[in-house]
């Protein structure tokens, strides 16, 4: 390894400071006693207490979690099939249309996808009376559609890194294609599916724009609620909520990372 030059090192320091100082400031100010979020009024944890009492927030959080789990599970199911198809089915008819359909939601500006889906739901409601009410169902559909791409990409890259002769060997030993998928392919892509699920879940919890479009009255996810509050400016209880989310996700990611590292060491050693 060559040593990095002084310029590169200072860019690294600057870059990481840029990424983390804003998050740190939120964490620090969440312990600010003052109602005015920008004036330091001494250390306090009172905003965390008020957070727990806020039923609006807890019910929005619950809705978000429900949508996240459902959408991530559906996206993992569809995305895994799509990833397997892209990596293993060779050239099937309309492959390029399929590839485009799978991958485009990943890069499509959210406002377009959101508007398009809302118009679909409105049209469907006129035509067949479904969906009667927009909320959990419609948001879940939107998030699933969007997250399929991410799962598919993760599964596909895992499969292309995998020796195809593993599946051939299983077939050679008498496994029929469906059995081979159950016996060999699925266990080997399970970590990729788990990673895809986690990513889909996070994307769903994080989404504001799609949910704002396709949600109806009363169906407020956590990001929608936060957005309606922060539109008006910085508030201390949102600082506290943000801190909880930051800590929760950081710990989760760190755990996932160390597990992945240990698994990586196991399989390479």
């Amino acid at each position: 390894m060559t040593r990095n030059s002084r310029f590169v090192i200072s860019m690294l320091v600057f870059g990481y400071a840029f990424l983390y100082i804003p998050l740190l400031s939120v964490v620090v100010y969440s312990f600010n006693d003052s109602r005015l979020a920008t004036v330091w009024g001494g250390f306090s944890t009172r905003w965390y207490g008020e957070l727990l009492k806020n039923e609006q927030i807890t019910s929005a959080l619950f809705l978000s979690l429900k949508i996240g789990v459902t959408a991530a599970t559906l996206a993992t199911l569809f995305g895994t099939i799509a990833g397997i198809a892209l990596a293993r089915f060779g050239r099937f008819r309309s492959r390029s249309l399929f590839t485009g359909l799978v991958l485009s939601p990943m890069v499509m500006p959210e406002v377009i996808t959101g508007l398009a889906l809302l118009l679909l739901f409105v049209s469907l409601q006129q035509l067949i009376g479904w969906p009667g009410q927009r909320g959990f169902g419609t948001i879940t559909i939107a998030h699933t559609t969007f997250a399929i791409a991410y799962v598919a990409v993760i599964v596909q890259s895992r499969l292309s890194a995998m020796d195809e002769s593993l599946e051939e060997a299983a077939m050679d030993l008498g496994g029929r294609p469906f059995r081979v998928m159950i016996d060999i392919t699925l266990p080997l892509i399970a970590p990729a599916m788990l990673a895809g699920w986690l990513l889909a879940f996070t994307l769903s919890l994080d989404d504001l724009v799609l949910a704002s479009f396709v949600s109806g009255p009363g169906g407020s996810t956590l990001p929608m609620l936060i957005f309606s509050k922060v539109k008006l400016g910085v508030t201390p209880d949102i600082n506290a909520l943000a801190t909880l989310i930051i800590v929760f996700i950081s710990v989760g990611v760190l755990i996932a990372w160390s597990i992945a590292r240990r698994m990586g060491k196991d399989s390479s050693g």
């Binding site: 998050l23 919890l205 994080d206 504001l208 922060v230 996700i249």
Partner: peptide
Amino acid sequence: ISFLLRVY
């Protein structure tokens, strides 16, 4: 970590 919170 939430996009919205990072902007916030």
